[in-house]
Design a protein around this nucleic acid. Structure first.
Lengths: 335, 335
DNA sequence: GTGAAAGCGCTAACAG
DNA sequence: CTGTTAGCGCTTTCAC
């Protein structure tokens, strides 16, 4: 019989069980310290009253919330989802709640960092795929809340990242080993606001490795286009219409590889016979599309972040940790 | 200069600004009620101290958390993600925090309902794609927390659902209108624990409509298989190897349509020429695959749920609301 | 083993 | 406009 919203407290339980509120509290937190008789009566009272401890109150008394926050770009992109999945799973195992803050713009991100009541409201924070500026890092530090960044790295912050340069290298190597020499690259335009350092490094590693093998990446082989399928289709056509069309393509982001794959099918180009396609990330989608790709274990990145975060929470004096997750080439049908 | 974790309170601010804590509180909640001079001094103090209000304390005093919870199956399936996306977006606009509880088994669900401190920790609850039993509905009611269920419906609970029977009907009608008469159906096995009522109704609507058009759904045209691609591939082969193979197939769940599409490609079957394929849901994935499908607006379902929930929170006396979202046939390349 | 009582940080009357 | 004061529900000494 619960009365009006949230109305039954330990005091009610205490009264009904004929003990003090302190004893009920003990019962809840350290049952061993309570006599068996009292225990039974309290348990009965709890049952009867339908008592549920109020986390808010608990958190205030305890000075911790058992809740960790995740700041992530508005999760339209599958990669965020997979990272989140890793986080959610690990957190749930550790009995932490997960609160999500989605960010749709740089401005909103700034707002969050400026105004969100981090300290005291969260036991820790995970920042997913969002650039961490010095200012933010500093604010995080001074607010004294344990945090870890995924994908972007900052010297003063825990983070879990991958070696994008190495990823580019692996991609190039794979394509070369398959006998390709006319190799193309497609990725996002380099817009200033969302300067994706990782994509750039991927590209650099890719190009350097090609160069080391005596292959120069021709300018007309590299396409920077928007993520819309239409744009990708057009770029693919341009590529194929070249006098010397590429025989292979590396998509610096999985969407591009996937998009080109789709475009290729529409254009009647056989994959991988006429055009080999290689992606990066290994989204769930990639498996469905049978795309060969460089896998970074997205779910794992989330799990790792949680691990580091919890360690940090339990021992605040812990030094900053940077982990770099391994990459792996997953060979499927498109190369 | 923030001192040890979460240490600066309104009292600190008050002292520094030479006012009482109440004034600081007013400043925070109703700045108009504070004199300009005091305001400035308080603002300055806040800045200097790096003060951030602690949500826990606020929530306790206010008796509301500005936080709503979402219980969802472990979000491996894209449909959950899209629903979540709608929820997250709507919630963020309304300045609510979103806390996520993922559930991996029926048992865990029971645990949540039994032991999670819902009341007093959350202002509201959204239950995504999880069967709501009478017991749970009752507990929800008595704990007096506003809630809404998505996908599953319960008479005593707000919910947003679709008309699955109608969906099945639309699917059948579309296929019939395309001239098909040998039509197959593929879906999940009917396991007792996860009795997916919606899938069953989809099927019924589908079969009834076929029947009304004088087409009887042959037993060897309906396949209940696991979601693994391999199982789907095998089922597809069996279908196609029939003396009279079907010319069209309806996947009661999008995965099946997608899986069959993939299988068809592997088997060299032309889609839609040799086999038309129709899905249900319209996941992001469907667009990528150019799958014709019956769309239920997943994102929208989340948005609606939030709307109802907030309305309910603001006016607890509001009657239970059942909304049924419309379905729409999205014609793409596979039929 | 148990109870009394003092907080945890904030808000909301109530006087002034 | 502002300060005083009493909670919100739970935990945690400190005595007994």
């Amino acid at each position: 019989m619960a009365s009006p919203r949230g109305t039954v407290t330990i005091y009610d339980v205490a009264k009904k069980a004929g003990v003090s509120s302190a004893t009920v509290s003990r019962m809840l937190n350290a049952p061993a310290k309570v006599s068996p008789e009292a225990r039974d009566r309290i348990l009965a009272a709890i049952d009867e009253l339908g008592f549920v401890p109020k986390a808010e109150a608990r958190a205030r008394a305890l000075q911790r919330t058992r809740r960790i926050g995740v700041i992530t770009p508005f999760f339209t992109a599958p990669a965020f989802v997979q990272r989140l999945r890793g986080i959610a799973s690990a957190l749930s195992k550790a009995h932490y709640e997960l609160v999500i803050y989605t960010v749709e713009s740089a401005e909103q991100l700034a707002n969050y960092f400026a105004s969100i009541p981090f300290s005291g409201n969260l036991d820790g924070l995970i920042i997913v795929s969002l650039p961490v500026t010095d200012l933010y890092a500093q604010r995080l530090q001074s607010s004294n809340i344990p945090a870890v960044a995924i994908e972007y790295s900052h010297p003063d912050l825990n983070c879990v990242v991958i070696d994008d340069y190495e990823g580019g290298r692996m991609a190039a190597e794979h394509l070369i080993s398959k006998g390709h020499r006319r190799i193309a690259f497609m990725a996002k335009p380099d817009v200033p606001e969302y300067t994706v350092r990782s994509a750039t490094q991927r590209f650099t590693g890719f190009r350097d490795t090609l160069a080391a093998a005596g292959i120069t990446l021709r300018d007309d082989y590299v396409k920077h286009v928007m993520e819309q399928q239409e744009a990708i289709l057009r770029a693919t056509e341009e590529l194929l219409r070249l006098a010397e069309p590429p025989t292979a393509l590396f998509g610096g982001l999985e969407i591009y590889a996937l998009g080109v794959l789709k475009a290729a099918r529409q254009l009647g180009v056989r994959v991988p016979r006429d055009l080999a396609i290689l992606g990066f990330d290994d989204l769930d989608l990639a498996e469905y599309a049978d795309l060969t790709t460089v896998r970074q274990h997205l779910d794992e990145s989330g799990r790792f972040a949680v691990e580091i975060l919890l360690a940090q929470i339990n021992d605040p004096s812990r030094p900053v940790q940077h982990v770099r997750l391994p990459l792996k080439l997953i060979e499927r049908q498109t190369t």
